[in-house]
Nucleic acid binder design. Structure first.
Lengths: 195, 195, 195, 195
DNA sequence: GATGAATGAGATTTCATTCAT
DNA sequence: AATGAATGAAATCTCATTCAT
C-alpha cells in the first residue's frame, strides 16, 4: 500500500514537471509516465484520464495554497496585514515550487474544462473579496469599492508578477522577490485606502 | 484583387469567432473554414498552418491595441491621465470586440511558440513601464518603485478584470464597465502615489 | 500562335529540369509553372494533367532517341558496328542533355502508368533485339542466344552506366565518357561473339 | 515478447506485398496495416513513418542479398566462377521472393532519400568491382578494364533482366530462368575475357 | 490565351485510451 | 499492481485540378 501510494505520487510529481515544462496540451501521457519512471498503462491505473491527472495536481496544489490563505484570514490582524500575508504566501509558493506555480499560472483560469469542475478556484477570489470587505468594515478601505471587482484586480496583479518570474522576464532572486513583496503590498494597500 | 484580400479577412474574422467560442485547441481548421464560408484548403492558401492563423490574429489585434496605447502616451497629460486613458482603451476593447479579447486573454500565455515570436507583447509592458517612469519624473509616483515590476502588476490587474468579464464572473453591462473603469484607475493611481 | 507554342515549350523544358532535380512524384505542378515563369493554370491549358506533362516529355525525348537509334540500324554496317553506334548515341545524349537522361533513367520502366501508355519504350528493346538477330544472321553473334533476353541485358548495361553518371558515382568528364564508350562496346560485342 | 516481434514482421511482410503490387507511392499506410491484419496505428508503433517501413524492407532484403554475394566471393573459385555464382544468387532471389525483387527493382532508383541513407546499395557494386579486379589479377579478365565501370555495367545487365521478369516481358518459367542464367553468365564472362 | 484564387478529396501522422498478459 | 503492445478516431496538411475573371 505504501508502495502504491508512492507510485501515485511519483506520477503526480512527474506530471507537474512535465506540464510545467511543455504545457498541458503539448504533454503526452507517455512523457509523464517516462518522467515518473513507470509504465505507460500505470497512469491509467491511478487516474481516469490525462485530464484527471491535471485536475488532481490542481486540486492538491490549490488545497495547500487555499489552506494557507484561509489561515491568513484568521490571523486577528487588520485587512492590510491580511493582504500582506496573502501576498507573502503566494510569492513564497514561487520560491518553494516554481514548477507548480508555473503550471497553475499557465493552465488555470484558461483551461475551459478545469474551470467548470474546480470551483475551488473561485475560493481564491472569495478570500480576497472577504479581505477587502473586511477592510471596508474596519474603515481602512474605501467604502465605495466593489469587493468582487477588487478580488479579481488583486488576483491579476499577483498572478502577473508570478508570470513575469515564470517567463524569466522579472528578476526573481531572493532580494528581488522580497522587494517585490514590499512594493506590491504597499501599492495595493495604498490603492484601496481612503484618500 | 479586392476579392482576394477579402477572403483572407473573412478567414481571420472567422478564426477570432471560432477560437473565442471553442478555444484554440478544440477548434479544427475545418470549423474556421466553414465559419468563414470558404473551402478547407483556402485557409492553407493564405496561412502556413493553423498556428499561423492564430499568430496573424494576435499580431493584428495587438497592433491595433498598441497603436491606441502609444497614442495615449503622446497626449500631453500627466502620468495619471495617461494611465486612465490606457485603462479606458483596454476596457473599451472588451466592449468593441469581446471575442477578440476573449481570445487574447485565454490563449496568450498558453502556446509557447506564440511567446517567442511575439515580443510585441512585451511592448505593452514597456508602455506601462514608461508611464510609471514618467510619473516618477513628474513626482506624482513614488520614486522607489520599480517601473518594470509595476508594468507587470498593472497589466495583470487589467487583464484579470477582462478575464472576469470573459468568464462571465463579473457584471459587464455598460454601467458596470464604467464604474469598473473609475475604480480601477483610482485604485492603481492612488496605489502608486507618494503617501 | 508562335508565342503559344513557345509557352508550351517553356513548360516542357521546365518540367524536364524540375522532374530531373526532384523526381516526378516530389515535383508539384506549381514548381513546374514557376520554373517555366508562367501562371499556375497555364500548365492545365496546354496539358490535361501533371502526368500528361511527363508523358509529353517522354514521348518527345524517346522520339528523338529512337529516331537516332533507328538511323543506326540503317547504316549498312555489321551488327557490331550498329551496336557501337547505339552506345555512342545513348552516351552522347547524356552529354547533350543530362537532365533529360536523368529523368528518363529515373522514371522510365519504373513508373507503372508510363509503361502502359508508352509502348514506344518497347521499341528501344526491339531495336537492340533486331541488332542481335542481325548479328546472328551474319554469323558474328552466337546463334543460341535469345535476342530478346540480350536486348534487355544490353539495355540494362547501358542504362546503369548512365545511372552511375546521373548519381555522380562514375566519372563523366569527356575522357571518361569516351573510354567508357570503348570499353562497353568491346565488352558487349565480345560477349556476344562465338568463342 | 515473441508476439511483439511477430507483429513487426507481419507488417514488414505485408509491406513487401502491398508495395510490390501497387508501388510505394500508390500504397496507403492503411493498406499495409489491413494486409498485415493489424490496426492502423501499430505501423507507427514499430516504424516512424511510411518511408521508414520501405527503408526497413530495403535494408533487410539487401542485407540478405549482400551476405549471399559476400559468401560467393569467398568461395575459392576463379573470377568467372564467382561471377556465375553471383548471377545465380540474384536470379534465384527472383524465384524465391519475386515481390521483394519487384519492389527493389521498381523503387530503388526512385526515392532520393533512400539513396542517401542506403550506401549499402553501393556495396553491391563494390562486390562486382572486386570480382572483376580479382579476374584481372588472375589474368582471366582484360587488364585495361575499369573495374568500377564494369561493376555498374554488370549490375545493370542483371537488374534489367530481373526487370523484364518483373514486368512480365520476359518468360520466367523454370527453364527460361535457367537458360537465362547460362546465357548471361557466358555473355558477361566472355565479354570480360582477353581476346 | 493567361492568371492565380478556390476547391476538397485523400494521405499521413498523433496520441488518449484499452486490454491481454 | 504493473506492463507496454494494440487500437482507431480525429486532426492537420498537401496538392492536383477547376474555374471565374
Amino acid at each position: 500500500m505504501a508502495a502504491a501510494a508512492e507510485k501515485r505520487r511519483q506520477i503526480l510529481d512527474a506530471a507537474v514537471r512535465v506540464f510545467a515544462a511543455q504545457g498541458y496540451h503539448a504533454s503526452r501521457v507517455g512523457d509523464v509516465a517516462k518522467e515518473a519512471g513507470v509504465a505507460y498503462g500505470l497512469v491509467y491505473h491511478y487516474f481516469d484520464s490525462k485530464e484527471a491527472v491535471l485536475e488532481a495536481v490542481f486540486r492538491e496544489a490549490w488545497g495547500r495554497l487555499l489552506a494557507a490563505v484561509a489561515l491568513a484570514e484568521e490571523t486577528g490582524g487588520d485587512a492590510a496585514e491580511q493582504l500582506a500575508l496573502v501576498v507573502r504566501i503566494v510569492f513564497r509558493a514561487w520560491r518553494d515550487d516554481p514548477d507548480l506555480v508555473r503550471l497553475l499560472v499557465r493552465e488555470i483560469t484558461r483551461s475551459p474544462h478545469i474551470q467548470d469542475e474546480l470551483d475551488e478556484i473561485g475560493q481564491a477570489f472569495k478570500s480576497l473579496e472577504r479581505i477587502v470587505a473586511h477592510g471596508q468594515a474596519e474603515g481602512t478601505f474605501r467604502p465605495e469599492l466593489d469587493p468582487r471587482l477588487c478580488g479579481w484586480m488583486l488576483y491579476g496583479a499577483l498572478e502577473e508578477v508570478l508570470t513575469g518570474w515564470v517567463l524569466g522576464q522579472l528578476p526573481d532572486d531572493a532580494n528581488a522577490v522580497e522587494a517585490a513583496e514590499r512594493e506590491v503590498v504597499r501599492t495595493l494597500v495604498d490603492g484601496l485606502r481612503p484618500a
